[in-house]
Design a protein around this nucleic acid. Sequence first.
DNA 1: AGCGACATGTAAGCGGTTACATGATTCT
DNA 2: AGAATCATGTAACCGCTTACATGTCGCT
Lengths: 183, 183
Amino acid sequence: MSLKHALLGFLNYAPMTGYELKQHFDGSIRHFWNSSLSRIYPMLGEMENEGLVTMEMQVQDGRPNRKVYHMTQAGREELQGWLRTPLDQQPVREPFLIKVFFGANLTKEEILAELRQKLAFHRGLLADYRGPVREGMKENIEATGLKRDGLFWRLTLDAGLKHVTASIEWLEESIRKIEELDE
Amino acid sequence: MSLKHALLGFLNYAPMTGYELKQHFDGSIRHFWNSSLSRIYPMLGEMENEGLVTMEMQVQDGRPNRKVYHMTQAGREELQGWLRTPLDQQPVREPFLIKVFFGANLTKEEILAELRQKLAFHRGLLADYRGPVREGMKENIEATGLKRDGLFWRLTLDAGLKHVTASIEWLEESIRKIEELDE
DNA sequence: AGCGACATGTAAGCGGTTACATGATTCT
DNA sequence: AGAATCATGTAACCGCTTACATGTCGCT
């Protein structure tokens, strides 16, 4: 259950509402994770029941009360325990490669169109990682002054960069090979 | 719904039972897809209801009857349609990177242990792709004589190779960076 | 006047895993 | 004697997505 531990990870920096947690997700880890509020809210409720967090209600009028969640000692232990337990490797699952695998059912131009579209998308991703994502991360590190943490944050971005780069290379090579096919 | 179309893709080569389809999955696309029999059987039933396949019962005794599924014209059209429709890009989801992101909660040695384990696993994967997976694919191409199809099959393997290689490089570099940290 | 930020949720459905159920035949 | 292969499924549960529901405040 990774969502739970991602939430604990952020709450370990500071108490927050579900809404703010979602913003941290989008601002810090969107290059490898995403979650919707409709999952976050119920999950925080469960975590409260399990005693991993406590909830502090801040009454507001005109809009729903803020529910600020605080890490408990049990929560800190749960996070530590999870971090120390190796994840079991989850199987690869690439729907796109199913299309490629059965690509012989399409014409050369049809399959090329698909690959070119994917290539454009991945080039966009690369630009995003090198630009806004990298900048956001830099700002977070400067704003918090967390240098040791910052090293790990950067590693996750490096992972993203390696993977998009690999995808782009593969797409370029694949397009070349298919273009050489005579139909 | 990729499982459905992967099944149609294989049934397009030859009529088969669910059990045999599972073997084809494991023998041809396990480097990017996997599925369990407990999903395949109900899915074939649905596909029959939708008219994408027909079922031919081969009575056996001592074991369950073989249910051989045949592609219909509607099935062929469904497959073509799916192959021609761009997939919408599904979001990245890397639980492992959550652990890295919050790695500052662990000691240097704890996080290194995790990364080294992952590295060993990925080196194993690489050996598998270069060995048995590549061999199996070659045999499939020779046995069926499907050269054009074989090109696409190989592309999916290339994708796998690119990605594991990228992961290995990232792990090696990350390990080096963390080792340089003084605690 | 309309949109985005703020702030919380519920309900239905989907695709998947894991465990359970059965049982003969062939290989080691 | 025990494991793998052949061959089919059902049931419970799980994490996630999408759609629905509500309503204010501030900016353009």
